[in-house]
Design a protein around this nucleic acid. Structure first.
Lengths: 346, 346
DNA sequence: TTGAAAGCGCTACCAA
DNA sequence: TTGGTAGCGCTTTCAA
């Protein structure tokens, strides 16, 4: 086992602030001031220190630093997804991009953490990690059921923002897309296209995103006095979507329209419809959700509900950073707009 | 601004080891021993400490801990991708799953870092972060050109393993798929299917993955005395693949077979071929690479070269952990096997 | 089996 | 504008 205390650079032990001070002929305090860009240092001293830093290839020890400042300059992105096919979904890709963009210029690092399948041991390890001062705050996304994590973190004093409305109101601020309106728009579009027997492949029952889009869809059909009984739930995967579509066709053969709660689900639905010889959109119209890369990579291209994915990530980050900066009067929740994008499938 | 030094749990300041010791009626040393599972603690003392920890909801401060141990229990995954569409690619999803799996049970956390577009400021910030003791080691993937980062980290004493062969041999160990053989298999399959005018949409010119698959493809065609001049490069995106396909058809209208260096590229190629009225596989056979979710979500399903994506991630992790554990005689490089999966497109 | 005490490398306060 | 100094919370000898 390598002894980490023997860590070296080019064979020499890693330099400390003390040595930089000696090399520059000043005190530790002065070196510290230079490193942290604090005022009250003469140009001469500053230059001497910078030269010494350069010569010794000095890099401050973050552990020591954060031990005293109580800050780590990193924030966590916790993806609490039971399955681990999280990153296959372009939705996450977009959110991640947004978070990254939101973090740019903040000098904070992103720490990604996947909360494994079950609670069990891992869940606790995760909570410990987050509570033990590794991060200044946390973003929690893709929560299922009434996940206790956000609430726990908040209680433990770790600033948290949830991505997606937490079920059971965990009492933490959150950012979400306006999923209800999205579902509503999808339903209305199908209705106005003359469809009368409209089904939906809803998202997971234990996620707000699954519920809210479903409720919006229901509202849209009710407005037109159409039945809302053709509902099947699916996870966010192509195969899940295909299976759900098969189930739907079995139970309601007369379907002429489907709202899939995600493009990735719609892709599976499309595959199954084609397999069973139904034409899209002639026989069955399909509306997706997300306006992800999937929407334009299938034939016909998907009519879908666009949600501002990257903005989702940016907003999430902004909200957390604002909280960390101690800003007052922050909105407890933020809803981002969704809009319909009409293409070939409906 | 919230003063982090005032961090509290339920209004009380976060407890320290000192307070646990007082609460349990033992010394700090004993508490430390219990926390770290060290021998030489009486059952009675151990129990008292555990109760105190429970009561106070004590969580060790990692900064303090790693200041003395010089270990952080986290490793970095550095994705040095100039563009930021990294996570749209299912390849990363799989690798990430593998890494996560490989880390399970190691008590180490994964820190994901995206190395922004340019070197500039950000590159340095990244290097500083990694060198300042935030992580015990780093995994660097998706390198372009002869990225100096892995070499720099290694020089600075940070253990590194590269995912994908580093161009210009950075002198760090690496794990990669056998891309050469993959390209070779793809070419041979097209040849044996009777195709005579075979093109390739290669990956980026500045990545080993782009080069190695191309070289393998060339070898396969050379074996059959076929020309190897129909080459266009593309990034790993659907649109890039479509554009490359268009370019290829313009330059070589007589093409009857294409090897796309990634499924995501093949999807774009398929779209363009269809748009131009060429039937797949009748007019043009298409072979992809990855065997990702894209392969089966298009029509016809892609014949493709499978690479063991998750194993890639697991192996990467294993290699780094072994190195951290001080194991000797570790292989400097590991090549994972690739194999052909025949479906409808070729 | 236990406890006392010496730091780990840094920041922040106070005095000069 | 500077330097001295007291910790931050923990691990790790060394003695008892």
């Amino acid at each position: 086992m390598i002894d980490p205390a023997e860590a070296t650079v080019d064979g020499r032990p890693t330099p400390t602030l003390e040595e930089v001070a000696r090399e520059a002929g000043v005190s530790r305090s002065t070196v510290s001031r230079v490193i942290n860009d604090l005022p009250g240092v003469s140009a001469r001293a500053r230059e001497a220190v910078n030269r010494a830093i350069e010569r010794l290839r000095y890099v401050p020890n973050e552990a020591a630093r954060s031990l005293v400042t109580r800050r780590t300059n990193s924030i966590a992105l916790v993806v609490s997804e039971p399955g681990d096919r999280v990153f296959g979904d372009p939705f996450f890709a977009g959110v991640l991009r947004g978070i990254h963009a939101g973090l740019a210029g903040s000098k904070r690092q992103l720490v990604l953490m996947l909360a494994g399948d079950d609670a069990g041991d891992e869940g606790e390890a995760l909570e410990n990690y987050l509570c033990s001062g590794h991060v200044d705050g946390a973003l929690v996304v893709s929560m299922h059921g009434s996940d206790p994590l956000p609430g726990r973190l908040a209680t433990a004093g770790v600033p948290v923002v949830a991505g997606g409305r937490p079920l059971g109101g965990a009492g933490v601020p959150y950012v979400d897309a306006d999923n209800f309106t999205g579902g509503l728009l999808a339903a209305r579009h199908l209705v106005s296209g003359g469809r009368r027997r409209i089904a939906t492949i809803a998202g997971p029952e234990d996620m707000a995103v699954g519920i809210d889009r479903l409720v919006g869809w229901r509202r849209g059909l009710s407005e037109a006095d159409l039945p809302t009984d053709a509902v099947v739930h699916s996870d966010f995967s192509v195969d899940g979507g295909a299976a759900a579509m098969a189930e739907l066709l079995r139970r309601h053969p007369g379907i002429d329209g489907v709202f899939a709660a995600a493009d990735i689900i719609a892709v599976g639905a499309l595959r199954e419809l084609t397999r069973q010889g139904r034409r899209v959109p002639e026989d069955v119209a399909v509306v997706g959700f997300d306006d992800s890369v999937f929407a334009t990579s299938v034939t016909p291209a998907l009519t879908t509900v666009r949600q501002p994915v990257e903005e989702f990530g940016r907003t999430l980050t902004w909200r957390l950073l604002a909280q960390l900066a101690g800003e007052r009067h922050l909105p407890p929740s933020i809803l981002l707009p969704t809009e319909l994008v009409v293409r070939g499938s409906a």
